[in-house]
Write a protein that binds this DNA or RNA. Structure first.
Length: 648
RNA sequence: GGCUCUGUAGCUCAACUGGAUAGAGCACUUGACUACGGAUCAAGAGGUUUCAGGUUCGAAUCCUGACAGAGUCACCA
């Protein structure tokens, strides 16, 4: 039985015997004691004032005395206002440490027999991965590791969006402007090579569109739209809102606001008409669409080109994934799954889950779940995004029989997943109650939103190279690794750089939008990944020098320093941290836990000598404590996908 | 306009899910190694938790209403 349960049930008994009232163990408000007070755990006694009809201080005293008398692990207590601070006996902590210090897997839970699938990354294949993908991948990976540590069997998958208009754009641009170039011939990383042609397409389209805007046809389109008073009025309103926001933003950032950028004409061509132009007038747009149709028809030449482009991209992605240290158990390709789900819709139509409109389109009415009516099949019988998501979910269940599915997807799709999950529920899918959308906020730069069109995206490969370069520079300044071979040194430098990057991103709660400052992300001091690594490295250094010590002597160490108890208490909390992170699908708590533990250890290390401790008993005890901290830090950081070097 | 998320120190983030005097890091100021790794430690300064009400013994946290930012409301994905 663990100590928190022991205390809680002790309080239940105390309340029963002292006040003849029944409370549940769950309701006992128990938390670690704040560091400015004496004690290890604190019980809040305010809730018992009514049933005891006494003052909080008095209740605290009575409960404290009862626990001290009846519960062996409680050595002492004090009461401040309505807070009962309990002191756990030193022998409890030494026994606990004795139990865990040699366990490298401390904190991990035994298998619980449940299977969960985590989907993450899921890129488009027309351009390389960027900072946004990195947040997604780190969240997905660490959540997978955490679920695994919490006892689940985890299946990691990604959906590769390998078809559609976007990849056709890259293909077309390569065909027209590529002149037979290949990644090998240009020396470019192959996914960047493909992305280059995507950008090329967008540039060419932009030029084409701009020329058309000035042409007679373009001006006429604008003029005829302008005749529609209602539409113009609506657009003017939207434009006003846009201007107001832009002005506010310029003001906040101390920049000048240029009203010439916000004319009605620019708004019309930029926001309102762009899709229409692409679909109906653009030569490039027509060509890209024609290519998509040919792809769907299975045209050999187009398919061959498509395969070539995608292969290039995959080669590049694999490299990036490997550098990041992530891998998947199975990949689903949209080109294989995009037709799934139609049969389910038809069957659901029979069962009355869906309804059909006169034009033949199929819908689901979710108004009683506070959602809307949602189209699930077009009037021409073709599928939409949600159709294939329904089919894919069923496919995955067939493949793996999972109890839960976690989708790591940005918060712009919150509504989509609400609709999807509700629909699957109504279809009676067996896994419907185990669906979770791990929604996360977009990553902003200090300069504002990332926009691929404006070239303000932070490339994943560049970013990793940058943090590693910074780690290299820091390492060279210290010359602590000079005796190592180059390969070994580089491996450590890589671990340090990636620790900085990963920790910086994972420490923020998923649902929050985060500001990513590249300058801060390469920081290696303070609340950072390398700071945590440093605590681990210090311990390794101590263990190398004092590892021969016979740890039996620790048994004679019976009076712990405050900070030693605090460290033991923190270690004790680790399994709970993992369980909570798993239950909430939130790795940020693990990151913050690792930081707190490292910080506490750094302080302990500074204030007390380990190898030159006052007695053999103290030395042995502190070695055990250090070893336990090292294991815990290593496990915790491993859950975040961060490796711990033995030296740095 | 409807719905959802967010708003905490100059900046980046916490706050054990309703508990004590709201905590860290960065930046700034000042200290600490002839001792186990200074990527460290300690100290100082920095707050009307966006605002106004409400519930409660107790609110950054829950409720209502404003305000601000973001997202979404496609026979797009």
């Amino acid at each position: 039985m663990n100590i928190t349960d022991t205390i809680q049930s002790g309080v239940v008994q105390a309340v029963k015997s002292l006040y003849d009232a029944d409370v549940t163990a769950d309701s006992v408000n128990l938390s670690p004691t704040r560091k400015e007070f004496e004690g290890d755990y604190t019980v809040v006694v305010f809730p018992y004032t009514k049933l005891a009809r006494k003052k909080p201080e008095q209740i605290g005293e009575e409960l404290g005395q009862y626990l001290k008398d009846q519960v062996a692990e409680i050595a002492d207590f004090n009461v401040i206002k309505g807070f009962l601070n309990l002191e756990v006996s030193d022998s409890f902590w030494t026994a606990f440490l004795d139990d865990i210090y040699a366990k490298e897997d401390f904190g991990r839970q035994p298998a619980n027999g449940q299977k969960v699938m985590v989907e993450f990354s899921s890129p488009n294949t027309n351009k390389p991965l960027h900072l946004g993908h990195i947040r997604n991948i780190l969240l997905g990976w660490s959540t997978s590791q955490i679920l695994d540590a919490a006892g689940y069997e985890v299946v990691k998958v990604q959906v590769v969006n390998d078809r559609g208009i976007a990849i056709c754009k890259s293909m077309l641009a390569w065909q027209r402007f590529g002149e037979g170039a290949t990644p090998a011939s240009t020396g470019q990383k192959s996914d960047h090579f493909v992305g280059h042609y995507y950008v090329k397409f967008e540039q060419a389209f932009k030029e084409e569109y701009k020329a058309w805007q000035a042409s007679e046809a373009g001006q006429q389109a604008f003029a005829s739209w302008k005749a529609d008073e209602k539409a113009v009025k609506k657009a003017e309103k939207a434009l006003e809102e846009k201007i107001r926001k832009a002005k506010g933003k310029a003001e906040r950032e101390g920049k000048t606001f240029d009203p010439a950028e916000y004319t009605l004409e620019k708004h019309f061509f930029g926001s309102i008409y762009k899709n229409t132009y692409f679909n109906e007038h653009s030569e490039l747009g027509q060509a890209a669409k024609a290519m998509l149709l040919k792809w769907e028809a299975g045209d050999e030449e187009v398919i061959a080109l498509w395969k070539q482009m995608n292969d290039w991209v995959y080669e590049g992605f694999d490299e990036t994934y490997e550098r990041l240290g992530v891998e998947f158990d199975k990949l689903y390709y949209e080109s294989n799954t995009y037709l799934l789900g139609k049969d389910t819709i038809k069957a659901g139509l029979q069962d009355g889950v869906f309804y059909e409109k006169e034009d033949g389109s199929v819908w689901i009415d979710l108004t009683d779940a506070k959602l809307d009516h949602k189209l699930v099949l077009r009037s021409d019988g073709t599928s939409v995004y949600i159709t294939q998501d329904i089919g894919t979910a069923q496919e995955r269940y067939k493949d793996f029989g999972v109890d839960k599915m976690v989708y790591v997807v940005a918060d712009e799709q919150d509504y989509h997943f609400q609709v999807l999950f509700e629909t699957l529920k109504r279809l009676g899918e067996p896994y419907a109650n185990g669906l979770y959308h791990l929604s996360y906020g977009m990553v902003d730069l200090p300069s504002g939103k990332m926009k691929s069109r404006e070239g303000t995206v932070v490339d994943a490969d560049d970013l990793m190279a940058e943090v590693i370069a910074e780690a290299r520079q820091n390492t060279e300044e210290r010359d602590t690794l000079n005796d190592l071979g180059k390969a070994e040194r580089e491996a450590i430098i890589r671990q340090i750089g990636l620790a900085a990057l990963k920790f910086f991103i994972i420490k923020v709660q998923p649902q929050k939008r985060m500001v990513f400052d590249p300058k801060e992300s390469v920081d290696m001091q303070g609340q950072t990944g390398p700071y945590v690594q440093n605590a681990y490295v210090r311990i390794q250094s101590v263990l190398r020098k004092g590892g021969e010590q016979d740890l039996q002597a620790a048994a004679e160490y019976t009076t712990l320093e405050t900070i030693e108890k605090a460290l033991a208490g923190q270690l004790y909390a680790f399994p709970g941290v993992i369980q909570e992170a798993a239950a909430n699908y939130d790795p940020s708590g693990v990151a913050n836990y690792c930081y707190d533990l490292a910080k506490q250890y750094h302080r302990f290390y500074h204030d007390f000598s380990i190898l030159n401790a006052e007695s053999d008993a103290a030395k042995a005890f502190r070695l055990k404590l250090s070893q336990a901290v090292a294991h815990t830090l290593k496990t915790g950081m491993q859950l975040l996908g961060i490796e711990m070097p033995a030296r740095m």
